[in-house]
Structures are given as C-alpha cells and as structure tokens.
Amino acid sequence: MLAYRLFFVFALFAFSTTALAERDLSAESYVDAIGKKYITALTNPASSYAKRSDKFDEALRNHFNMNRMGKLALGRYWRQLDESKREEYISAFNNFIKASYTIRFSEYPTASYQIVASKVLKGDDVLVATMIKSEKLNNPVRIDWRLSKKSGEFKVTDVIIEGVSMIVSQRSEFSSIIQKNGGNISALIDLLKEKAQTVNG
C-alpha cells in the first residue's frame, strides 16, 4: 500500500505540468450565450412540443449556419444538384432537423452545463467543449460545438455529442438512402419532407 501511495505521489508530480491549449474566449462566450438563452427552454419537461419546437426553430435561425450544415451533410452529392434543387434540399433539411431534434430533445433531462475548453482549428473553425450535468444522468455528457465565422459572426456548424457528430451521422444516413435509391437524390429529399411531416403530425 505504501508503494502504491508513493507511486502516485510520483505520478502526481509527473503530470502536474500543464500544457495550455489555445483557447478562443470569444467563441466560448458565444456558446455560453446560446446556452443561457436556450438550455432551460429546450429541456424543460413542462413546456409543450409546440413551444419547444418554436424555441428550437429560433435557435437554429439565429445561431446555426443551416446552409453549410445541409451542404456538409449531403457531401459529394451536393455538386450534382442545380440551384433550385439545392434550395429545395436545404429547406427540406431544415424542416427535418427541426422536427427530429425537437423530438430527441424531449428525452434530455433538465441540465446544467459548464464550458471546459476550446480550440482553434485549421481554417479558423473553433471547437468549444462543454460538459452537461444533470441529476438524472449517471455521468456528465460531453458536447462539442463547432463554430465557424459567417460574415464576421460565429455560427454553429456541427454539434458533437460524446464523439458523435451530427453532420457525420446525418451524412451517413443520407448517403445510405441515396445509394439504396440508385443515386437518386430526389428520393432523399422526398423522404426528408415526409419524415418532417410524420414527426410533426
């Protein structure tokens, strides 16, 4: 036991040198502002679906770069769409995300968050890491917010929950659907519209 303790005294010294990562405090305060404004409203079990849906819509419009997200989620297929199809897809993507994530939010318990770190990436995107804590959760949940600048202002372009990126997941699902339909992107667009409707209905 003594050896065990000595070992850890040593280990403690070895690991006490802290290498400071490059933080971006303005990005952190941007995420903090979104958090303050929306976390209670979106996870409040007392508020109705319609109310939460409106709130979420507001958050998406003000703080998310939905065009870029939609584009990234479609991946290489984006190039195959003409201008009018792109608009149709982005609008369907918007409604789909709004409907499906409002539903998923209803499973999230009321929680508090803490901003723990941030990192500036190549190409000026910034990742802000938050830890979500709740009495209902066994363990804290890590959520990373990827921000990119759009005309000088930060906008969210991806949300990564415990390693799972929203963009990567959606893309995986979308490309699976397109492939199943022999490369037909319209099939995906129709399905997105249909899903948004059934979920809302």
Partner: peptide, 27 residues
C-alpha cells in the same frame, strides 16, 4: 475538476467537402 490539458479535440475531416471533392469514407 476538469483540467484543460485533458480535453482532447478532433478536427473532423468532412472530406474536402465544401464543394464535395471526394467522398467522406466513414464506415
């Protein structure tokens, strides 16, 4: 207390994808 140097990030490679240059191989 979470310490800063323990937080690891990943810069997801969306696959040179702004204009969809190549497929993102994920699975």
């Amino acid at each position: 207390d979470v310490k800063l140097d323990e937080i690891k990030f990943v810069d997801i490679d969306y696959g040179a994808n702004e204009e969809g240059e190549e497929a993102y191989v994920e699975v």
